[in-house]
Design a binder for these strands. Structure first.
Lengths: 219, 219
DNA sequence: CTCCGATTGTTCGTCCACGAGTATACGCAC
DNA sequence: GTGCGTATACTCGTGGACGAACAATCGGAG
């Protein structure tokens, strides 16, 4: 599944959705996205925007509608969405909504090397993360509250989601931190010992080497 | 913040962490990562691996330790981590653990164009997503349970996190779906009307156009 | 003993993302 | 009116990610 999109960059989805509303030239699309707030979490990469538009054009998902020139300004090409483009937008939306996919996460990567940090430092850093998360959460919550009433909630549904995920993350990190602080986290002793003596127990060493392939009952 | 890493690809972090354990040649690193299970969520891109290793070498974070050739096989270069590399690993781990950063999410992108789908179809797709999420969650839970006891939990902490996030997502989607199904979701009427008549209310149209800059009380 | 598929190990070429650069026009201060 | 900061609008070059190809060896099956 997850059919190869002719233009894969997610920015293309945003472009399609703005141009679906009415024809625009690329810079205008950027403005629209910005005016929308779509760029709050992900500033618009102008370089990519033009590449993406060109590719959408090449694949027939957009078409040049008009190409005007004002004075000595660079030429502006206005694009409209094609039927194919509209179909792609719908299909893509369906896929994204219906199909979860594991995506790389920086924090996950960090956790996967957490062991290289001594436990006390790790705890300290996690505390810092929680503070930042809390701040972000209340910031987002305030922003959402500010928009509520003004804007139909459907336009903010992604922000609700983001907020929920941040809250969940904060809560999970709190749990982890709690276990570390209280020393209840299983394997704490080994972790600490490794950082104090520089040596790991034989069984962990064995694990690190070779056959980590833990008994998957290969029927 | 988020200092520009000399080698930014997260695969480099994984590479550093394997080579920190003992010197290896690139293919071996890949094997190690795989044997670990780090590739479950993100299959190793061999093309990138060699690029990343070369770049780490170029920037002095790895160094060629030995370059043997067995028979007519292609030359194998064994790399060891340098002090600078070790420092980078630590520093990077610190950053990743301590600093949350909003990352692009496919689902979020999907939500941001949810409005292009008629509400009933959206609900159907969300139901599908929930099923897939539930399946994934129980799969992951089983895998974790299988490893528990065999492997120190610290080695699985990222998987715990992933699991928690998936559960949170499922739960949030359930909430959304509930509101849509019951018609309680605010703006439902407009949403449905738009798809049935093809017209939006004047105020939404006004929002879509221009000054969406919702009254941020500028200081 | 030889054929074939899997495993070991690496290189190469292409595509694409995006930062930085370019160039004009507008508006406001003095 | 003239200087300069800022908005408009686009182009281009570089570097990096990764798919796909390549090449040798190994381990059975017949």
């Amino acid at each position: 599944m997850a059919k190869r999109r002719r233009v894969g960059n997610l920015l293309a989805l945003a472009v399609l959705s703005t141009v679906a509303y009415r024809p625009m030239h690329p810079y205008e699309m950027g403005q629209a996205l910005r005016g929308w707030g779509k760029d709050d979490d992900m500033p618009i990469k102008w370089g990519s925007l033009y590449t993406v538009v060109r590719n959408l054009d090449k694949h027939g998902l957009l078409a040049a509608a008009e190409s005007s020139r004002q004075g000595a300004r660079p030429e502006r090409t206005v694009y409209r969405i094609t039927d194919e483009g509209r179909a792609e937008l719908l299909d893509w939306a369906r896929e994204l909504v219906s199909t979860p996919e594991t995506e790389p996460s920086r924090f996950k990567a960090g956790l996967s090397v957490l062991v290289v940090l001594p436990p006390d430092e790790a705890a300290e850093l996690l505390r810092g993360r929680i503070d930042l998360l809390d701040a972000e959460v209340s910031g987002r919550r305030a922003a959402l509250a500010g928009h509520a009433g003004t804007v139909p909630p459907l336009f903010l549904v992604e922000d609700e989601f983001e907020l929920a995920m941040r809250e969940a993350e904060a809560s999970w990190v709190r749990g982890l931190l709690d276990q570390i602080d209280s020393g209840r986290y299983p394997g704490m002793a080994e972790w600490r010992a490794w950082h104090e003596t520089g040596r790991v127990s034989a069984e962990v060493a064995a694990l690190a080497e070779g056959t980590f392939t833990t008994a998957e009952p290969t029927d």
